[in-house]
Design a protein around this nucleic acid. Structure first.
Length: 890
RNA sequence: GGGAGCAUAGCUCAGUUGGGAGAGCGCCUGCCUUACAAGCAGGAUGUCAUAGGUUCAAGUCCUGUUGUUCCCACCA
């Protein structure tokens, strides 16, 4: 047996982790004798080190993996990182800017070299952080979305989709960032409300001098590209004008007035300028009416040739100048200040410009079907129904996916152009153009959207497109665990790629968890400086405490706040567990587990029954992914039932060193050890380090708790009778403690003798057999148990105790009866207490009577419930009578 | 504008088939009782946002209202 320090000390965590690694406990291999259980880590972006959100996300996964591993599954948790195309490129661009360099200064190859250096640095940091937190990933299988195997999978999928005709090039209006010079996906556009201006202008109507149509716009610079004015078809103000033309003065172009029901007659003037090249809605109107598309802007946001004399101006300057020109021509009316939503790029916060671009698209209609079907048929489950609805909604409104990006960091699109403009798509650089045989080929400069590679993550990490044994054994995975905002970007895309290339959904369960916020409920953000660094918590308190903090006190699907007070509470709990184990060890010196036939006492049967139901509950809660609840149950059990009650209950037996009581003592030791071991196992997935440490201190047969067997529910251990007995004893103990507190009796004071007047034979036997237990908990030198009496009352009991010293009569519960505690009676206090008690009982009784007198309840409620209420009625009536008798006796 | 949440003790939050309102922190009282003061024992505190409805029975189900958060879309 080992000796433990007096207080919990997390400093040994790294040592324990090193041992696990050395022993290879995290490794998973194809094993036909076991059922696989697989989780793919959501690969963290290599843009930055990990924050507490990652700690939370991965703790959830580690709990599941560790539980399943102990339950005998072949558990694989595959780790890795994501190249995070745009965000990483932005970070590296910022970094080289500090050296006064730009991407173009370095050139593509040298720039990518710098990004790889960044990747080595941050990828390494991330992996070491994950290890610091104790995560049991199979590190031999670590993957990166741009490593050789995964890149091969990406190219394979691109080529196959292209050959199938699902990937096409198209001119489409895309979100364009004029700063980053790239398209960005809808998901990367942030919408923020801001102050803006609504400018009212009028265009002269062609051929009708003095006639105008008035419209409003927030973006006058795009007027250069207007190709129509639209009004609502039923707007009577304008019906006469439909079909006529107006003139755009700056460019002197005639455009038609058209009718489209998109226009809201109530907004602005009811007339809208239509700029298909610079607005998504206008683009759609343009499609419907076959309007020309006039792009007036360069990639950097300046006006192009189409803008005549505005050419070369920035969009901001062009706006000012156009307002001036319109004013000079008497066509400007007024400016309103409004708040409206502006789309900005979530990386650089520059206002997004919709632009017409030639892009690569993936057709979604067919791919989306099986992904949607998986959910509607119930094959794919979310931990909460509402997240499933989000998934479903997105898939029903899905559009084609723009998969090309004008950046360097990422998987370069395997498309090659010949001078004739033919496209050859191939995994390896082709020698000649597949159409015309030209040997002068140039690869597309664009790279793929970062989510293209992560969409393949569940199978590319297992060796796909090769047909590997790993892939066969570990795919599909069991659980995917991520945050809500990732549902569209990632969950959906993994689903359709998995269905398409594996013929099977990549996972059956999705766990969506909430966000960890700061103590004021704000999101943690660099700009606010309110982020919590996991390392800070780990250095001060250890990884176990961090993990427990994130998992306790909250349902995992809702957002939670990070409080240092909670961290301290969790640390305190670790210390409690540490000391409970220390206590057990101190009392096990002479214990050997070859003796299993020692007679168990009722409290042993009670705690065994309790840990047994706890095992059932915790296992069920983990299986249904209610990890906050499962964790809470274990903590409550250990602290309340095991430490505060059971340990106190066994002290008399443990301290009884007489040889004739050796059997009793053995039984207590055996039970203590057994229950503690089970509790440690149940807690291990949440706090792996401390439980390993304590497990090893308690026994030397198994070399790790990680691979020990998960406790199982045993119906034979269920013991309702023992639970009832202990409830009676606890109730009696509480009554005495209550009296002590009210009368301010020092806890160290031992009452001479407490006399128990049980209500029935059952209670008499109970108290008679567990006198030592009761006296220890209640603080008495001796216990006298009287014959049972149904005729309990203060008066009769008092009468029977004439020889006893003056004392206090304490009610101990309906069955347990009365306790006579030697102490001076304080009549006034006692009156107050009893009056309160009486009121309480009267309320309870009124409620029960109300139910039992209710015809509806009696005829419709289940019989068991009615019986329960009847029992309560009898119980409360009897209790009330006693209290009243006591009151009148005073 | 569309969708989804949330509103329970002073604070932070549990409460998943409807059947006597819970925890932690904080607060008050008494204790350094030979595992633990990072502890022990005891205590106070709630018209479960609001108005209706369903039901024998509603924190729990339905509807409206108010406040609040998030996601998606977006107004020329």
């Amino acid at each position: 047996m080992k000796e433990l320090n007096r207080t919990y000390d997390p400093s040994r965590e790294s040592e324990i982790y090193a041992r696990w690694m050395e022993k290879g406990y995290f490794k998973a291999k194809v094993n036909p004798d076991k059922t696989p259980y697989t989780i793919m880590i959501p690969p963290p972006n290599i843009t930055d080190k990990l924050h507490v959100g990652h700690a939370f996300n991965n703790t959830i996964q580690d709990i599941l993996i560790r539980t399943k591993r102990m339950q005998g599954y072949e558990a694989l948790w595959l780790p890795g990182t994501d190249h995070a195309a745009i965000s990483t490129e932005v970070q590296v661009v910022k970094a080289i800017a500090k050296e006064g360099l730009t991407k173009d200064d370095l050139g593509r190859d040298a720039f990518l070299e710098r990004v790889w250096q960044w990747k080595e640095l941050y990828g390494g940091t991330i992996i070491s952080q994950l290890k610091l937190m104790g995560f049991s990933c199979d590190w031999d299988r670590e993957r990166f979305t741009m490593d050789e195997g995964l890149s091969d999978a990406v190219l394979e999928v691109f080529v196959r989709l292209y050959e199938e005709g699902k990937i096409y090039r198209g001119e489409r209006l895309v979100n364009w960032c004029t700063k980053c010079q790239t398209t960005i996906s809808d998901a990367e556009v942030e919408h923020e409300d801001g102050e803006g201006h609504l400018y009212h202008f009028k265009y002269p109507i062609h051929g009708e001098a003095g006639e105008y149509i008035t419209f409003a716009t927030t973006r006058p610079e795009t007027m250069l590209g207007d190709t129509a004015i639209a009004v609502h078809p039923e707007d009577e103000r304008y019906t006469a004008l439909i079909g006529k033309n107006v003139i755009i003065p700056m460019v002197n172009r005639q455009i038609p007035i058209i009718a489209d029901s998109y226009v809201d007659p109530a907004y602005g003037t009811g007339a809208v300028k239509v700029t298909p090249a610079h607005d998504p809605n206008d683009f759609e109107i343009g499609q419907r009416h076959n309007l020309p598309i006039i792009n007036v802007m360069n990639d950097d946001g300046t006006i192009n040739n189409a803008g005549t004399h505005y050419k070369g101006l920035t969009r901001e300057d062009a706006r000012t100048k156009i307002i001036e020109e319109m004013t000079a021509k008497g066509l400007y009316i007024k400016t309103e200040t409004i708040t409206h939503a502006k789309g900005t790029h979530d990386r650089c916060h520059v206002v997004v410009e919709p632009l017409i671009k030639l892009q690569w698209f993936l057709k979604m209609e067919e791919l989306a079907k099986p992904a949607l079907e998986a959910y509607t048929s119930g094959k794919l489950k979310f931990n909460r129904e509402r997240f499933g609805k989000v998934y479903q909604h997105w898939l029903t409104i899905i559009r084609d996916w723009c998969i090309s990006r004008q950046i360097w960091w990422g998987h370069r699109i395997p498309a090659y152009f010949c001078p004739e403009g033919h496209i050859t798509v191939a995994k390896t650089t082709p020698e000649v153009c597949s159409t015309c045989g030209n040997t002068n080929l140039r690869q597309d400069d664009d790279t793929l959207d970062t989510w293209f590679s992560s969409a393949l993550w569940p199978f590319s990490t297992l060796g796909w497109p090769e047909k590997t044994p790993d892939l066969d054994y570990f795919y599909p995975t069991n659980v995917l665990c991520t945050a809500q905002e990732i549902i569209f970007n990632w969950v959906v895309r993994m689903m359709f790629m998995g269905e398409k290339y594996m013929g099977e959904a990549p996972f059956t369960n999705v766990i969506i968890h909430g966000t960890i916020r700061d103590d004021k409920g704000r999101k943690m953000a660099k700009s606010l400086g309110n982020g919590i660094d996991p390392k800070e918590v780990i250095e001060k308190y250890g990884a176990d405490v961090l993990r427990l903090t994130l998992l306790s006190g909250n349902a995992i699907d809702s957002d939670s706040r990070f409080y240092w007070e909670r961290v301290e509470f969790c640390r305190n709990f670790m210390n409690k567990l540490w000391n409970a184990t220390r206590f057990v060890l101190m009392n096990l010196e002479d214990y050997s587990d070859d003796s299993c036939n020692n007679p168990l006492e009722v409290e042993d049967l009670w705690i065994l029954s309790r840990i047994n139901s706890l095992t059932k509950e915790v296992t069920e809660k983990i299986d249904s992914h209610e990890l906050g609840m499962s964790t809470q149950k274990i903590v409550d059990f250990i602290w309340d039932e095991f430490c505060d009650w059971y340990i106190e209950m066994v002290k008399p037996r443990l301290y009884a060193k007489e040889p004739e009581r050796a059997m009793e003592r053995r039984a207590a030791q055996e039970t203590l050890r057994k229950v503690l071991m089970s509790a440690l196992k149940l807690l291990h997935p949440v706090t792996p380090f401390i439980t390993e440490d304590l497990f090893l201190a308690l026994q030397d047969k198994e070399e790790t708790i990680m691979l020990s067997s998960w406790p199982t529910f045993d119906k034979a251990m269920d013991n309702i009778e023992a639970e009832n007995c202990i409830e009676h004893i606890k109730s009696a103990v509480r009554s005495v403690r209550n009296m002590r507190a009210e009368k301010q009796v020092a806890p160290s004071h031992k009452f001479e003798e407490i006399i128990v007047q049980p209500a029935d034979e059952y209670a008499r036997k109970l108290f008679e057999s567990r006198k030592d237990l009761f006296s220890a908990l209640a603080g008495a030198k001796s216990i006298i148990v009287k014959s049972p009496s149904r005729e309990l009352s203060h008066a009769t009991f008092d009468n029977s105790l004439k020889q006893s010293p003056k004392g206090e009569l304490v009610y101990a519960g309906f069955t347990a009866g009365y306790l006579y505690v030697p102490w001076t009676v304080d009549t006034a206090n006692e009156k107050v207490r009893l009056t309160k008690e009486k009121q309480k009982l009267q309320q309870e009784l009124a409620r029960v009577d109300g139910k039992l007198n209710n015809q509806g309840f009696m005829s419709k409620a289940p019989e068991s419930l009615i019986n329960e209420e009847r029992e309560k009625q009898a119980k409360f009536t009897a209790m009330l009578e006693k209290v009243e008798a006591e009151l009148s006796a005073l």
